[in-house]
Amino acid sequence: MSSADDVGQVDFVYPSSIEVLLESDVDGLLDAPEKPKKITSSDRLERAFLQIVEFRRAHGRVPDSQTREIAERKLGARLDGILANEEKIAALKHLDEFGLLDVPEAPSSIDDLLEGDDFDLLGDESGLLDVSGLPVRRQQFDTGDAARRKPADDFEQFDPLFKQKHAELREGTSKLLPYPGLGHIIPGAFFVLNGVMLFIAEVGDTEYKKSTVRENKRERLRCIFENGTESSMYRQSLAIRLSDEDGQIVTQAQMTEILTDDEVSGHIYVLRTLSDDPQIAGLKDLYKIGFSRGPVETRVANAAKQPTYLMAPVKIVVDYRAYNLKISALENLLHRVFAEVRLEITQIDRKGRNYDPSEWFVVPLTVIDQAIELIVSGGIVDYVYDPDSQTLRARS
């Protein structure tokens, strides 16, 4: 009989190292579980699209985003969202076996649209789409000749002119009359078009354009508007607009009417010198009376360099526009009336030459205004100027 120590005894052998233990794990019991792969946004997008592909394979059509079936509507809405995003379309193109992501070309005409209407959704039994009986609309082409408003770079030199005209309108020395005709669109003229005052700064050279009937002539204008813009419209174009849109001309208050056939003769102007020369600046009631066919502002732009303006800047005191008058005769007549009070002075021009200005007179402005009114009415021939009383008196 054996001893108790021999009954049920089992001997265990322990491995000498961890490597031996791992090598003995033939069933892989000690293997570490693999980490699950991280799902990216691209993976989710592809899985979502593959569900749409499977729906197409199973049903033979794309899912409808408007159906009442919730599952199908979700797939349809998902497809609509993908089609609205070019990046998603590009990322899923390799999975699109049914052409779900193909964008149809837009029809190039109404006829193409109607031909592609497989379900006759645009059928026109009533004839609403038939435009054959409508008048043909004239197609407009931009030839580059159209004048458009643009900011006037030198508006600061014109702004005082507008302020002066508005002041004259308030004071009653100027007034608005209906637009009288094309012949009055000349340099220096003021008009009101759609409530905005404009000034004719320049009239360009005459251009000739041949038509099938005749050769038409036209001139480009430089129109300055009181809002700081300018336009280079044609003279005839401005005339049409002033006529069609009830335009007005700004003229002297004594003008009661301007007829279409009245001819613009030019401007009668009165200037005051701004000279700081003691022998000139000390003279009271010294004025230059002259005539100009073009804008007075242009005429006196370089006054400081010209002996006729006493080699100094000037201020425009009065600017009357004259109609149906012979300028040369009026100039001689007005100078003869004030001959006794003409300024006797010699100026030296920029080249060192002597010059005797002949249009400066020492006479009160009120008398000059009276003389101009008599010129316009034609009554000046019956008056002479008396230097002692500084008045115009009737000839004896």
Rank of each mutant, 00 (worst) to 15 (best):
G99H: 07
A152I: 01
D112C: 15
D153A: 15
P104R: 04
E202Y: 13
P160L: 03
P187R: 12
G172P: 03
A201P: 00
R149K: 10
E202F: 12
F155H: 08
G172W: 04
F190M: 09
E105W: 00
I200H: 01
D102V: 14
K175Y: 07
H184R: 11
L129A: 07
N194Y: 10
E105Q: 10
D112N: 15
G183Y: 06
A106I: 09
A106C: 13
P180T: 11
K175Q: 14
S132G: 09
L169G: 06
E171F: 07
G183P: 08
I110P: 09
E156G: 02
D112S: 15
D159K: 13
V131Q: 11
G195C: 08
L100K: 03
V192E: 15
G188V: 06
L182P: 02
V196M: 05
V136S: 11
N194P: 02
G144L: 03
I185N: 04
H166T: 01
L101D: 06
F190Y: 10
F162D: 06
G181K: 10
P180W: 11
F119T: 10
G127C: 01
F141Q: 12
F199N: 05
L101W: 02
K165V: 14
N194H: 14
F190S: 09
F191Q: 09
G188H: 02
A147Q: 11
G116Q: 11
P178Q: 09
H166V: 03
F191M: 12
P187N: 13
P160N: 04
D96P: 08
Q157I: 13
D153W: 08
L193C: 10
F162K: 07
L113E: 12
G144N: 05
L198V: 01
S132Y: 02
K175H: 12
P151G: 04
